[in-house]
Design a binder for these strands. Structure first.
Length: 359
DNA sequence: AACTTTATCAACCGCCACGAT
DNA sequence: TATCGTGGCGGTTGATAAAGT
């Protein structure tokens, strides 16, 4: 019990990852995808256990990770979700595109918890921390504090579409074909607790909207859960690199394979689409900048990636369906190969919605 | 400037669930 | 059915940076 067999092997490195290790892992995953984590270290030439590789990929190397501070909106969402779900960080993270459970957990423990306590709210119960509450738990409080969320009411498997600009009476998309797929998913596949906010790009707790009587009034709320992407029907996504003047200078070319370099060097335009073994990389940077950067001063990798989802490609190509978008972008990196990464798949689906929002 | 305390966060640990055998 | 290997999750630790004295 306890330690995995892979961790019992000798000579396995522990602790912080070096840039070289990151490079090896990143290259391996982008080329071959994720199959069996336990075999990754050997194949990638790493002295790490598979579990460690998985964690490093999920929490740090994954191209779709969002960086930087949590926004106020994210903060509020985490608090709401925590009230609903408790310490189920993975589930909470699934509602915040680009954020990892570890990141959210750290943020909660180091920041939000204290913030709530300062406001007199018990971070566990999310109820005001008053003497009254300590003595009489039976009182059903409707007291609202800035962070207070009304209690959850069960909604079963309701499937709510309220964005009238996109859906007809049958709840089918009028203007955006990709959304039809979401609508035609059985309601049982949907997460009844959340609805998707097209404005923010987040899945938000349903009770928030109910309590605020926003359904039907605000056209930003579309639905709710994503099509569950299985191994075989994951959205293909491309990786778009971008940079500003500052970050470009920090970019290392260490993750650039020969194909990328060759392709990039032959294309002097600002936007070029290149096709390494499995990756479609659209670069907006100068020629030898690819992958992500290693910021030596901060000892941190700074992924300069952003997913360019097929929905966008579909728009570019003038295709009319999700499936066509898949076909037309078959050269792009297929993250379906990362099938163990359920959170990633969820992130991707949300990234798709985010893309819809920006179209 | 030196030392201590506090905050942050990457990574590890231990456990559980699940599928394969 | 039992065992094993693996992925996944939440709790915790430890290194480092930042702030305070």
């Amino acid at each position: 019990m306890g330690r995995h067999s892979c961790c019992l092997k000798q000579k396995l490195r522990k602790g912080l990852w070096s840039p070289e290790e990151d490079e090896k892992l990143f290259n391996h995953i982008t080329r071959f995808g994720v199959g069996c984590w336990s075999s990754v270290p050997k194949q990638a030439g790493l002295q790490r256990c598979g579990k460690s590789c998985r964690l490093r990929w999920i929490n740090y190397l994954r191209p779709d990770l969002k960086r930087g501070m949590f926004s106020q909106q994210e903060e509020d969402l985490i608090i709401s979700l925590h009230q609903l779900l408790g310490n189920r960080w993975a589930q909470i993270a699934a509602q915040l595109p680009g954020r990892t459970d570890n990141e959210i957990k750290n943020f909660w423990n180091s920041c939000l918890k204290k913030k709530l306590m300062k406001q007199g709210i018990d971070p566990t119960t999310h109820k005001p921390h008053t003497e009254e509450n300590k003595t009489t738990e039976t009182i059903t409080t409707t007291t609202t504090t800035p962070m207070q969320i009304p209690s959850v009411t069960s909604q079963g498997s309701s499937f709510l579409i309220s964005d009238s600009s996109y859906y007809d009476n049958n709840g089918l998309s009028l203007t955006e074909p990709s959304r039809e797929i979401f609508n035609t998913k059985p309601a049982l596949d949907m997460d009844p607790l959340f609805c998707y906010d097209f404005q923010s790009g987040y899945n938000l707790p349903l009770n928030n909207y109910q309590s605020q009587s926003q359904f039907g009034l605000n056209s930003n709320y579309g639905f709710t859960s994503m099509p569950s992407l299985t191994n075989s029907d994951h959205a293909n996504v491309s990786v778009t690199e971008f940079s500003d003047n500052n970050s470009a200078s920090k970019i290392s070319s260490m993750f650039m394979n020969d194909q990328v370099k060759e392709s990039n060097s032959s294309n002097s335009s600002n936007m070029s689409t290149i096709y390494p073994s499995q990756v479609t990389t659209t670069t907006m940077m100068e020629n030898n900048n690819a992958g992500f950067s290693w910021d030596g001063s901060e000892n941190k990798l700074d992924p300069l990636f952003q997913f360019q989802v097929n929905a966008i490609k579909s728009e570019e190509f003038g295709t009319s369906s999700w499936e066509e978008a898949h076909i037309q972008t078959h050269n792009s990196i297929d993250f379906s190969s990362y099938h163990p990464l359920t959170s990633l798949s969820e992130d991707l689906t949300e990234a798709n919605f985010d893309a819809f929002h920006h179209i």
